[in-house]
Design a protein around this nucleic acid. Sequence first.
DNA 1: ATGGTTGCTTAGCAA
Length: 291
Amino acid sequence: MRIATWNVNSVKVRKDRVVAWLRQHRPDALCLQELKTTDEAYPAEAVRAEGCDSAVFGQKAYNGVALISPHAITRVVRGLGDGKEAPWLVGDDEVERLVGDEAARLPGESGDAAAQLLGEARLIGGEIRGVTVFSAYFPNGRSVGAPTYEAKLAWMGRLLGVLEDRFDPKDPLVLAGDFNVAPHDSDAKNPEKWAGSVLCHAGARDALERIREWGFVDVVRKHHPEGGLYSWWDYRQLGFPKNDGLRIDHVFATAPVAERSAGAWVDRDQRKGTKTDKPSDHAPVVADFDL
DNA sequence: ATGGTTGCTTAGCAA
């Protein structure tokens, strides 16, 4: 079973790339982030022409996540529900869009920012071939100390709460996506340059480590413990030509899935090319399982 | 270098 994640930075601009990638690499599950469009404008027909189903949680202009699979995608849930409606337990034929209504616990601007994040299209889950797969677009945070950074950490805490409330680490579960966190210094070409950024700050790393400790294996790290693999390079300042990258896109798997992992890799080819080739600033991250 | 580039939406924001 091949599970991949790709922040496409506009699915409309990247449609032909996504279709070609599906054809070439035939993932059993592809998690997309930053669709930057509504459900209605999502190119479902082009994906279907490749024999794949889509489950989409879109949003105008920003965010937006999707699951793509050649297999049936069941038990689809959208958003970070607050648990009252048991959002992860809806029936197969139901498609619920549930948004948390729990008032953000943070005060002031941070609380406002946190509440706003809970309403954004950043998480979609579904069951594919017996594995629960989430496509997640963690908040960026903008800058350390900003209300949006506090809100990022709160969002991550909320995600951990959903895992604790609704799932068991013994479940076959994959959390994949753009986590906007590089967990280790070896996940950056220039760790000193990024040390103070929201992508590498201790607070974000701690919050991600708490999620991982709940019961995940970082599958790429398992197969490349030395680091040096990156998944995102800034469009600015020749990020990719200088390989000034960070590994912020991840495939986390619970033990029953992770113990069957056979390899993991980053498709850097998708980040290559000139302006006219229109690459995303992220490359696909791929994990293969004997499942 | 409060720079640089890309995308969405229309001049400013987000990443």
